[in-house]
Amino acid sequence: MTPSRTEPRSLTDELWASIEPVYAKILDHPFVGGLTDGTLPRAAFRHFVVQDSHYLRDYARALAVCAAKAPDEADVRAFADDAVGALAAEQGMHAEFMDAFGASAEQAAAEPVLPTTRAYTSYLLATVYGGSFAEAVAAVLPCYWIYARVGQELLAKSSPDPLYAKWIATYGDEAFQSVVRRVLALTDRIGEEISPAERRRVVEHFTTTSRYEWMFWDAAWRGETWPV
């Protein structure tokens, strides 16, 4: 009798399995719960918006590096478009949020980049500049994928707070979900070509930046500042 063969896991299956405990912690975080029931303090959300504005500027740079390293012309164009989209989000949606707080995007840009944001973007940029294309994609992927999953999870609940409802709708929206599906399909194509050693590095980078995603929300919840 011929023994049955187990199909190898796709790279995206392996990546998600590596962060299931992290994602469970994200969904359980009071910042995320407070978005849907409307109890999240506005100060925490403002902290998030300001730091996310700082983050997205460097995330756009990281996506531009992914575009530069992409071997396929279609992927060059896609990551370049996503880099532009990240900046548009920073300039558009975040400006609306800051207006609701009685401040401007220019005022937000003048506020300091805080420890978790600095650590996350430093790791992200070091990885995309110093690593392979596969490693670069792994580092930027959690910001796509986790936000899409959280958006899907929260969309049905939405929020009684219109600001939080708008944030949820942005990431639960089909337009964003389709972008994420495209990046996941690319990730699985990459997984068919890389060596076992590179695959291990890909998983490590993906896991690390996923942890930073949890830390980013937690920093906003705690009202993180520079301690000295």
Rank of each mutant, 00 (worst) to 15 (best):
W167Q: 05
A86C: 14
R42D: 13
E135N: 04
A24P: 01
A169C: 04
L63W: 10
T225Y: 00
E106K: 07
T127E: 05
D52S: 09
E204Q: 13
A88P: 00
W167R: 12
D13P: 00
E213M: 05
S53Q: 12
E192T: 11
V22C: 12
A83K: 06
S4F: 08
W221H: 12
W145Y: 10
F48R: 02
E7I: 11
G33V: 03
E192W: 00
D28R: 07
D75H: 05
E106R: 12
G223V: 08
A165Y: 05
P8V: 13
R211I: 03
P21I: 05
G33S: 08
K69Q: 10
F206N: 13
D37V: 02
A43D: 15
T187V: 14
A103Y: 00
E14L: 11
S210Q: 07
F97R: 01
R5H: 10
Y212M: 07
A169Y: 03
F133I: 02
D188K: 04
A136E: 03
S122L: 10
V180Y: 01
A17R: 14
E111D: 06
H94A: 11
K69M: 03
A89R: 14
A119C: 06
A148C: 11
W16I: 01
W16E: 12
L56F: 14
D161I: 01
I26T: 08
D173K: 06
R201A: 15
S132A: 04
G131E: 05
A24M: 03
D173H: 14
E192H: 01
D58K: 15
L141W: 01
I26A: 02
